[in-house]
Design a protein around this nucleic acid. Structure first.
Length: 274
DNA sequence: TGTCAGGTTTCGG
DNA sequence: CCGAAACCTGAC
């Protein structure tokens, strides 16, 4: 395996927490079923040991995916403003935000209005099994996350067999947007333009749009206000429960001064495990 | 057996 | 504009 010095990364919380649904951990290695590739990871003594398949040694991918260029110390300093976030930072040290592929993120988060993380992951793993590419690795079978192209001729009926239910037609609508060139248009847009573009997709509302903005497009000041995000804003930070999504979003992005996405990730893990 | 969460759309007011 | 129902599935 390749070795990369990568201090201050909590790989467990980063890969297995709420931001990606495509990793599994066998107690020693992490296996990521990402777009048309499998990534194998081990983290030990501040070093990331890694390999990519089928194209080996794809260091450019690893450096980008693990978001290695950010100034982590600075982010922590900016967001560490009160007792809640301080506790979260202490409980989940070295949690990071990944930089995931745009299309992979959009497709994955269409599944996310499922009951819980377990249900979401089960459905996505079926999607990989149906449409991804099979890999044999370490005596186990993996299916990569399918490229959007491989999903273009997917039928609603087959997608429903993943257990995604009524969201199947949402996925088809998102795939139509991708087929019409969404990705090249949206990459490079500013945050608001990108959000408006995403919300135009049938089945994508404010919450999924915000997931895509932070995890798939790298907008560090965006955090999804799902039921947990709302609890953070209302229960921890005492904002008015009656306010709409937009008002809560404005509050948290102002409060965390450019890094609401990072703060939200810590607080999400924190409040879910209170 | 029933009820309910999860996010978005759609409908009724 | 806002609230509530509908959509599906799995969990309890």
């Amino acid at each position: 395996m390749n070795k990369l010095f990568l201090p201050n990364y909590n790989i467990y919380w980063t890969l297995i927490g709420g931001q990606s649904h495509n990793w599994q951990f066998d107690g020693e290695f992490y296996y990521g079923s990402l777009t048309e590739k499998i990534v194998k990871i081990k983290y030990k003594d501040n070093n990331l040991f890694w390999q990519t398949y089928p194209n080996n040694d794809d260091e450019e991918f690893i450096l980008n995916y693990f978001n290695t260029k950010v100034d982590y110390e600075k982010i922590l300093t900016v967001i560490n403003k009160d007792e809640h976030i301080k506790s979260a930072l202490e409980k989940y040290p070295n949690l990071r935000i990944l930089r995931q592929d745009f299309e992979e993120t959009l497709i994955s988060y269409i599944f996310a209005s499922n009951k819980n993380l377990g249900g979401i992951r089960k459905s996505i793993s079926k999607l990989r099994e149906f449409y991804g590419t099979e890999f044999q690795l370490d005596g186990k079978t993996f299916y990569s996350f399918p490229s959007a192209e491989k999903l273009f001729d997917a039928k609603e009926e087959k997608l429903r067999e993943t257990g995604m239910g009524f969201r199947a037609k949402y996925l088809i609508s998102a795939l139509e947007s991708i087929q019409n060139g969404l990705s090249t248009k949206i990459i490079g847009m500013n945050e608001n333009d990108a959000r408006n573009k995403l919300i135009k997709i049938f089945g994508v509302g404010e919450k999924i749009a915000d997931c895509v903005l932070i995890y798939g497009l790298g907008f560090d000041n965006v955090t999804p206000l799902d039921v947990w995000g709302k609890r953070i804003v209302v229960d921890l930070y005492k904002q008015n429960e009656k306010e709409k999504y937009e008002a809560h979003r404005r509050w948290i992005s102002n409060y965390f001064e450019g890094y609401a996405g990072w703060a939200g990730q810590f607080l999400f893990e924190y409040i879910r495990n209170l």
